[in-house]
């Protein structure tokens, strides 16, 4: 789309780029953001940075405060306390500057059903102050990018949910914004459409910094450089998905099935170095042991040696690591009472 932009916009963009490369300032900076609706506190002291060029996933159960945070960033709601800036501009006092640099796809992609796709995109390009020649080029570019070419002359009201989502996305990237903010871009799509959307978002991240929210962890893990997990208005985990997985998944579990004298097996295995606790169940002649190891110690070798030394039969030994998914499920099911104490930067 670069060719479609007027000279001044290109010059402006390269200055913006130079500024951010030179200073290393984050593209999105959020500091101690608080938003209250009456007595309800929707978000409670959120801080994070999104660096230029990153894809950041904003993860949390429904009602965690994702949409509220996003609405503050896009200038739709003002914050009660705290500050936020996008591309160096304050979202409250320099709202118009921020809005020019943001491409925003709200949850459920609201659009005017009576307008045709091309007509809608033309309307939006004019709101962004693009000339008709620039707009025409930009529209062609985003339409092919979002696989909408066949549908440009269809009224939006006739399109399926997935299609409308794409029209919303096309609108968001129309003016080649520095930052793309997408609120639940995969909700209500079928599995194929979800995969397509995610790969499109990944593709878009080559030109734009992307912040997108979701309540489904695997989607976020798949395409994000960083994840921010938020629950009840607070950040509970923040970092690269892989690192977070290692950090949050504190323990591991071993399942071993051994044939022999049950009580003795339990005692001997319990005495192995690194073993924290052992539980035993008898299953058609086999002793099924569930072993908790201390930290991330691997005691599989010890168990094997013990069994062969004593002449016990060993038919299965399996290690299960707690994943980020387990941790996330724990949060979403409400098992984590106070998020703040658990917050870490991985």
């Amino acid at each position: 789309m670069e060719h479609a932009k007027p000279l001044f916009a290109r010059v402006r963009n390269s200055f913006v780029q130079m500024y951010f490369t030179a200073t290393g300032d984050p593209m999105i900076r959020v500091r101690n953001l608080v938003k209250r609706f009456g007595v309800v506190t929707a978000i409670d002291g959120i801080s994070f940075d999104v660096e230029k060029g990153q894809v950041v996933g904003f993860l949390g159960p429904n009602g965690a405060g994702k949409t509220t945070t996003i609405r503050i960033l896009t200038g739709y709601h003002p914050a009660t306390e705290g500050s936020a800036s996008v591309a160096g501009f304050d979202v409250l006092t320099q709202s118009l500057h921020v809005r020019r640099r943001i491409g925003y796809l709200p949850e459920s992609a609201p659009l005017y059903p009576e307008m045709r796709v091309r007509e809608y995109l033309r309307f939006r390009s004019k709101l962004h102050g693009m000339s008709s020649a620039d707009a025409a080029k930009a529209i062609d570019a985003v339409v092919s990018r979002c696989w909408l070419s066949e549908f440009v002359n269809r009224p939006i009201g006739q399109l399926s949910k997935g299609m409308r989502q794409r029209v919303g996305l096309a609108d968001a990237i129309l003016h080649d914004p520095d930052v793309l903010i997408l609120d639940e871009p995969t909700v209500g799509l079928d599995p194929t459409q979800i995969r397509e959307s995610l790969s499109l978002i990944r593709e878009l991240s080559e030109r734009h910094t992307v912040l997108f929210s979701s309540h489904i962890l695997p989607q976020v893990e798949q395409i994000c450089d960083e994840v921010i997990i938020i629950n009840r208005g607070r950040i509970v985990a923040y970092g690269a998905p892989k690192k977070l997985g290692e950090e949050k998944a504190a323990g591991s579990r071993l399942i071993a099935e051994i044939r022999g004298p049950g009580a003795e097996i339990e005692r001997a295995v319990g005495a192995l170095p690194g073993v924290e606790s052992v539980e035993r169940q008898t299953h058609d002649g086999w002793e099924r042991l569930t072993i908790r190891a201390r930290g991330r110690d691997d005691v599989r070798e010890g168990i094997y040696k013990l069994a062969s030394q004593k002449g016990w039969g060993l038919r299965e030994i399996r290690r299960e690591l707690d994943s980020l998914e387990d941790y996330y499920l724990k949060i979403t099911s409400g098992a984590m009472e106070d998020g703040r104490s658990a917050a870490v930067r991985a």
């Binding site: 739709y76 709200p106 059903p113 709101l127």
Partner: peptide
């Protein structure tokens, strides 16, 4: 009602 106010008020218009 349709939520389009959100796209409108987050566009660079006053």
């Amino acid at each position: 009602r349709s939520g389009t106010i959100e796209t409108l008020m987050t566009a660079p218009v006053t």
